[in-house]
Protein backbone atom coordinates (compact mmCIF):
# COMPACT_ATOMS: atom_id res chain seq x y z
CA UNK A 1 0.00 0.00 0.00
CA UNK A 2 2.62 2.50 1.06
CA UNK A 3 4.78 1.20 -1.74
CA UNK A 4 1.98 1.82 -4.21
CA UNK A 5 1.44 5.33 -2.89
CA UNK A 6 5.11 6.22 -3.12
CA UNK A 7 5.38 4.68 -6.56
CA UNK A 8 2.37 6.61 -7.84
CA UNK A 9 3.69 9.80 -6.30
CA UNK A 10 7.22 9.43 -7.61
CA UNK A 11 6.35 7.96 -10.99
CA UNK A 12 3.47 10.41 -11.39
CA UNK A 13 5.67 13.38 -10.55
CA UNK A 14 8.36 12.14 -12.86
CA UNK A 15 5.83 11.58 -15.63
CA UNK A 16 4.27 15.03 -15.18
CA UNK A 17 7.64 16.77 -15.20
CA UNK A 18 8.93 14.82 -18.17
CA UNK A 19 5.77 15.24 -20.23
CA UNK A 20 5.68 18.95 -19.40
CA UNK A 21 9.34 19.19 -20.35
CA UNK A 22 8.61 17.57 -23.68
CA UNK A 23 5.59 19.77 -24.28
CA UNK A 24 7.70 22.80 -23.47
CA UNK A 25 10.38 21.62 -25.90
CA UNK A 26 7.74 21.23 -28.58
CA UNK A 27 5.62 24.34 -28.03
CA UNK A 28 7.46 26.73 -25.71
CA UNK A 29 11.04 26.38 -26.84
CA UNK A 30 11.69 29.96 -25.79
CA UNK A 31 11.64 28.91 -22.13
CA UNK A 32 14.89 27.05 -22.64
CA UNK A 33 16.52 30.02 -24.36
CA UNK A 34 15.53 32.55 -21.76
CA UNK A 35 15.98 30.55 -18.58
CA UNK A 36 18.86 31.89 -16.54
CA UNK A 37 19.93 29.94 -13.50
CA UNK A 38 21.07 33.03 -11.65
CA UNK A 39 17.88 35.00 -12.12
CA UNK A 40 15.72 31.92 -11.60
CA UNK A 41 17.34 31.33 -8.24
CA UNK A 42 17.20 35.02 -7.41
CA UNK A 43 13.45 34.96 -7.84
CA UNK A 44 12.92 31.61 -6.11
CA UNK A 45 14.96 32.70 -3.10
CA UNK A 46 12.91 35.86 -2.80
CA UNK A 47 9.74 33.84 -2.82
CA UNK A 48 10.76 31.14 -0.35
CA UNK A 49 11.92 33.63 2.26
CA UNK A 50 9.02 34.97 4.29
CA UNK A 51 8.36 38.69 3.85
CA UNK A 52 10.98 39.07 1.12
CA UNK A 53 8.43 40.37 -1.37
CA UNK A 54 5.92 43.21 -1.37
CA UNK A 55 2.99 40.84 -1.79
CA UNK A 56 4.02 38.92 1.31
CA UNK A 57 4.43 42.09 3.33
CA UNK A 58 0.97 43.21 2.29
CA UNK A 59 -0.62 40.08 3.72
CA UNK A 60 1.34 39.33 6.92
CA UNK A 61 -1.20 36.88 8.33
CA UNK A 62 -1.39 34.93 5.09
CA UNK A 63 2.40 34.93 4.82
CA UNK A 64 2.97 33.62 8.33
CA UNK A 65 0.27 30.97 8.00
CA UNK A 66 1.36 29.91 4.53
CA UNK A 67 4.99 29.47 5.56
CA UNK A 68 4.13 27.73 8.81
CA UNK A 69 1.73 25.50 6.92
CA UNK A 70 4.22 24.47 4.26
CA UNK A 71 7.09 23.91 6.68
CA UNK A 72 4.95 21.74 8.95
CA UNK A 73 3.30 20.00 6.02
CA UNK A 74 6.71 18.77 4.90
CA UNK A 75 8.45 18.30 8.24
CA UNK A 76 5.82 16.38 10.15
CA UNK A 77 5.26 13.45 7.78
CA UNK A 78 8.97 13.09 7.10
CA UNK A 79 10.36 13.51 10.61
CA UNK A 80 7.54 12.23 12.78
CA UNK A 81 9.13 9.61 15.05
CA UNK A 82 6.38 7.05 14.40
CA UNK A 83 6.94 7.40 10.65
CA UNK A 84 10.70 7.17 10.94
CA UNK A 85 10.30 4.01 13.04
CA UNK A 86 8.06 2.53 10.38
CA UNK A 87 10.64 3.27 7.72
CA UNK A 88 13.25 1.74 10.00
CA UNK A 89 11.15 -1.37 10.41
CA UNK A 90 10.42 -1.80 6.74
CA UNK A 91 13.61 -0.74 5.04
CA UNK A 92 16.06 -0.45 7.96
CA UNK A 93 16.78 3.20 7.19
CA UNK A 94 16.33 5.98 9.66
CA UNK A 95 16.96 9.66 10.13
CA UNK A 96 16.47 12.45 12.62
CA UNK A 97 13.16 12.35 14.49
CA UNK A 98 11.01 15.20 15.68
CA UNK A 99 10.21 15.23 19.40
CA UNK A 100 6.59 14.19 19.79
CA UNK A 101 5.66 17.45 21.42
CA UNK A 102 7.01 19.46 18.49
CA UNK A 103 5.31 17.16 16.02
CA UNK A 104 2.06 17.60 17.84
CA UNK A 105 2.27 21.39 17.85
CA UNK A 106 3.20 21.35 14.17
CA UNK A 107 0.30 19.09 13.31
CA UNK A 108 -2.08 21.40 15.09
CA UNK A 109 -0.50 24.23 13.11
CA UNK A 110 -1.30 22.46 9.86
CA UNK A 111 -4.89 21.93 10.92
CA UNK A 112 -5.13 25.53 12.09
CA UNK A 113 -3.68 26.71 8.77
CA UNK A 114 -6.20 24.62 6.86
CA UNK A 115 -8.96 26.28 8.87
CA UNK A 116 -7.43 29.65 8.04
CA UNK A 117 -7.38 28.77 4.34
CA UNK A 118 -10.94 27.52 4.61
CA UNK A 119 -11.88 30.80 6.26
CA UNK A 120 -10.28 32.74 3.42
CA UNK A 121 -12.19 30.65 0.89
CA UNK A 122 -15.46 31.30 2.68
CA UNK A 123 -15.13 34.86 3.89
CA UNK A 124 -12.86 36.71 1.45
CA UNK A 125 -14.94 37.57 -1.63
CA UNK A 126 -11.99 37.54 -4.02
CA UNK A 127 -11.03 34.05 -2.89
CA UNK A 128 -14.59 32.76 -2.66
CA UNK A 129 -15.17 33.84 -6.25
CA UNK A 130 -12.25 31.72 -7.43
CA UNK A 131 -13.08 28.73 -5.27
CA UNK A 132 -14.74 25.65 -6.67
CA UNK A 133 -15.51 22.26 -5.13
CA UNK A 134 -12.10 20.91 -6.07
CA UNK A 135 -10.41 23.56 -3.94
CA UNK A 136 -12.33 22.42 -0.87
CA UNK A 137 -11.58 18.79 -1.64
CA UNK A 138 -7.88 19.47 -1.92
CA UNK A 139 -7.92 21.34 1.36
CA UNK A 140 -9.67 18.36 2.94
CA UNK A 141 -7.19 15.96 1.38
CA UNK A 142 -4.44 17.82 3.19
CA UNK A 143 -6.23 18.27 6.50
CA UNK A 144 -7.62 14.76 6.98
CA UNK A 145 -4.26 12.95 7.36
CA UNK A 146 -3.25 15.40 10.07
CA UNK A 147 -6.55 15.27 11.94
CA UNK A 148 -6.63 11.50 11.85
CA UNK A 149 -2.95 11.32 12.73
CA UNK A 150 -3.42 13.36 15.87
CA UNK A 151 -6.52 11.34 16.67
CA UNK A 152 -4.64 8.08 16.50
CA UNK A 153 -1.71 9.50 18.43
CA UNK A 154 -3.99 10.46 21.28
CA UNK A 155 -5.90 7.19 20.96
CA UNK A 156 -9.23 8.92 21.00
CA UNK A 157 -12.44 7.00 20.37
CA UNK A 158 -12.26 4.37 17.66
CA UNK A 159 -8.65 5.18 16.96
CA UNK A 160 -8.14 1.87 15.19
CA UNK A 161 -10.62 2.92 12.51
CA UNK A 162 -9.21 6.45 12.44
CA UNK A 163 -5.76 4.96 12.00
CA UNK A 164 -6.95 3.24 8.84
CA UNK A 165 -8.41 6.57 7.71
CA UNK A 166 -5.06 8.17 8.48
CA UNK A 167 -3.12 5.69 6.40
CA UNK A 168 -5.47 5.80 3.44
CA UNK A 169 -5.92 9.57 3.44
CA UNK A 170 -2.18 10.07 3.72
CA UNK A 171 -1.62 7.82 0.78
CA UNK A 172 -4.33 9.55 -1.21
CA UNK A 173 -2.77 12.92 -0.56
CA UNK A 174 0.60 11.66 -1.71
CA UNK A 175 -0.85 10.08 -4.82
CA UNK A 176 -2.89 13.08 -5.97
CA UNK A 177 0.00 15.53 -5.72
CA UNK A 178 1.14 15.10 -9.32
CA UNK A 179 -2.36 15.14 -10.79
CA UNK A 180 -4.10 18.02 -9.03
CA UNK A 181 -3.40 21.64 -8.14
CA UNK A 182 -1.10 20.23 -5.48
CA UNK A 183 1.29 19.87 -8.40
CA UNK A 184 2.29 23.45 -7.67
CA UNK A 185 4.79 21.64 -5.46
CA UNK A 186 6.43 20.27 -8.61
CA UNK A 187 6.02 23.28 -10.86
CA UNK A 188 6.72 26.14 -8.47
CA UNK A 189 10.48 26.18 -9.15
CA UNK A 190 9.85 26.22 -12.89
CA UNK A 191 7.11 28.86 -13.09
CA UNK A 192 8.86 31.11 -10.62
CA UNK A 193 12.26 30.44 -12.13
CA UNK A 194 11.06 31.17 -15.66
CA UNK A 195 9.40 34.41 -14.60
CA UNK A 196 12.49 35.33 -12.59
CA UNK A 197 14.62 34.77 -15.68
CA UNK A 198 12.37 36.87 -17.93
CA UNK A 199 12.19 39.66 -15.38
CA UNK A 200 15.85 39.51 -14.46
CA UNK A 201 17.69 38.86 -17.71
CA UNK A 202 15.38 40.44 -20.30
CA UNK A 203 13.46 43.06 -18.39
CA UNK A 204 16.09 44.03 -15.80
CA UNK A 205 13.44 44.26 -13.13
CA UNK A 206 12.51 42.59 -9.88
CA UNK A 207 9.57 40.22 -9.76
CA UNK A 208 8.77 40.27 -6.06
Amino acid sequence: MVGVAFTVFLAGSFFRLISMWRLAKKKDGLIFSYISIFFALRSIVHWILPFAGVSMRKHPAMTIVAFLFHVCLFAVPIFLSAHVILFKESWDISWWRLPDMAAEIMSWSVIGSCLFFLGRRIFLPEVRYLTSLSDYLILAAVAVPFISGLWSYHQWAAFQVVMIVHIISGEIMLMIIPFTRLSHMLFFPFTRGYMGSEFGAVRHAKDW
Binding site: M20, L23, A24, R120, D135, I138, R181, T191
Partner: peptide
Protein backbone atom coordinates in the same frame (compact mmCIF):
# COMPACT_ATOMS: atom_id res chain seq x y z
CA UNK B 1 -1.39 24.23 -31.94
CA UNK B 2 -0.40 27.00 -29.60
CA UNK B 3 -1.37 25.85 -26.14
CA UNK B 4 1.87 24.60 -24.68
CA UNK B 5 3.47 23.98 -21.35
CA UNK B 6 3.04 27.54 -20.15
CA UNK B 7 -0.71 27.48 -20.72
CA UNK B 8 -1.01 24.08 -19.07
CA UNK B 9 1.12 24.84 -16.05
CA UNK B 10 -0.35 28.29 -15.49
CA UNK B 11 -3.94 27.10 -15.63
CA UNK B 12 -3.36 23.87 -13.71
CA UNK B 13 -1.23 25.09 -10.82
CA UNK B 14 -3.12 28.23 -9.86
CA UNK B 15 -4.41 27.34 -6.39
CA UNK B 16 -6.99 30.14 -6.43
CA UNK B 17 -5.45 31.91 -3.45
CA UNK B 18 -6.59 35.32 -4.67
CA UNK B 19 -3.30 37.03 -3.84
CA UNK B 20 -3.09 38.46 -7.36
CA UNK B 21 -6.19 40.57 -6.72
CA UNK B 22 -4.36 43.33 -4.91
CA UNK B 23 -2.09 43.78 -7.88
CA UNK B 24 -4.81 44.75 -10.31
CA UNK B 25 -6.00 48.33 -10.67
CA UNK B 26 -9.28 47.07 -12.16
CA UNK B 27 -9.98 45.07 -9.03
Amino acid sequence: EEGGARLKVYTETCVHCGLCSDACHFY
